[in-house]
């Protein structure tokens, strides 16, 4: 702790300037990156970078407790929660960046920039070059953590207690919201299989690309020219298949083709 404090013992030191500009750059880039990423996961990673850089800035400003809390609570817990929810609702989903609300994007940009300009004006209006510095305050109780603890458990005790109530309420609320009431007893495996047999379609559906008249195992699939083929029928069932009109020659031809043989021309003598 004292080592961290040593890094910020003086406002406006060169070290702090370097740290500020680097971290400010990272924070802004992270914020912009979060803004423009199509994937929510990328946004989450970008904002994590911003938060960490902010944590560094807290520490440089003589708030090591907050900096640590920022890392642990925000980047550690909150962002993990975000990612967790993202996983739950589909990590692959991307968001179209095309605006659907008319004028929303322009208005948002204009208003936000205007808002920022106003904030700049306000800060410039009241800012003082001379900062008191946090070191004195930190030293009063023998350290930053002790100082904050002193304030929290003394002057802000009531607010602190209220916050605890808020946290409890939030936890309960999250449970209530996330909870789903089950109204029927869970089906056993036996019941599930019985249901499937009774549904009239006990077997799996045919695979994609197979043009079957119906999905009985013995039904041959159809070739691209519309001819049925018993190649789709399991060996033991060939011949005894309920299917009619299976072109066995064709099956042979295809088998030969598959084996690397020449194309056997189609005999037309059957046609009458």
């Amino acid at each position: 702790m004292s080592g961290l404090l040593a890094a910020v013992d003086q406002t406006g030191s060169t070290g702090e300037q370097i740290v500020f500009w680097v971290c400010a750059l990272v924070a802004v880039v992270g914020a912009v990156g979060m803004l423009v990423s199509r994937r929510a996961v990328h946004s989450a990673l970008f904002i994590a970078a911003t938060m960490i850089s902010l944590a560094v800035l807290y520490i440089t400003q003589g708030a090591p407790f907050l900096g640590m809390a920022q890392i642990v609570v925000y980047t550690g817990a909150v962002m993990m929660l975000f990612l967790f929810v993202l996983m739950l609702i589909g990590v692959d989903s991307t968001e179209s960046l095309v605006e659907t609300l008319k004028g929303q994007r322009i208005a948002a940009l204009v208003l936000s920039i205007g808002f920022g300009v106003l904030l700049f004006a306000a800060i410039g209006n009241v800012s003082v070059n001379l900062a008191v510095g946090i070191d004195g305050a930190n030293a009063t109780d023998g350290g930053n953590v002790e100082g904050i603890a002193h304030l929290i458990f003394d002057r802000y005790l009531l607010a602190f207690e209220v916050t605890s109530a808020l946290l409890i309420t939030a936890a309960l609320g999250a449970m209530v919201l996330a909870h789903r009431e089950r109204h029927t007893p869970r089906k056993t495996q036996r019941e599930q299989s019985q249901d499937r047999v009774r549904s009239g379609e006990p077997q799996n559906l045919p695979g994609p690309g197979v043009y079957a008249l119906h999905n009985a195992v013995g039904t041959p699939g159809l070739l691209p020219d519309g001819q049925p083929t018993d190649r789709s029928v399991p060996e033991p069932l060939r011949g005894v298949s309920a299917a009619v009109g299976v072109d066995h020659e064709d099956t042979l031809r295809v088998n030969a083709l598959a084996a690397g043989g020449a194309i056997i021309p189609v005999t037309k003598e059957d046609e009458s």
């Binding site: 929303q104 948002a108 208003l111």
Partner: peptide, 26 residues
């Protein structure tokens, strides 16, 4: 019904508050 439109209005309102504050300070 679009939450973002409402948010836009809120931001506008906040901007107005700041305008008022700046004007008072000036």
């Amino acid at each position: 019904g679009f939450a973002r439109s409402y948010a836009l209005t809120m931001l506008g309102g906040a901007a107005l508050v700041i305008v008022a504050l700046v004007l008072v300070r000036l």
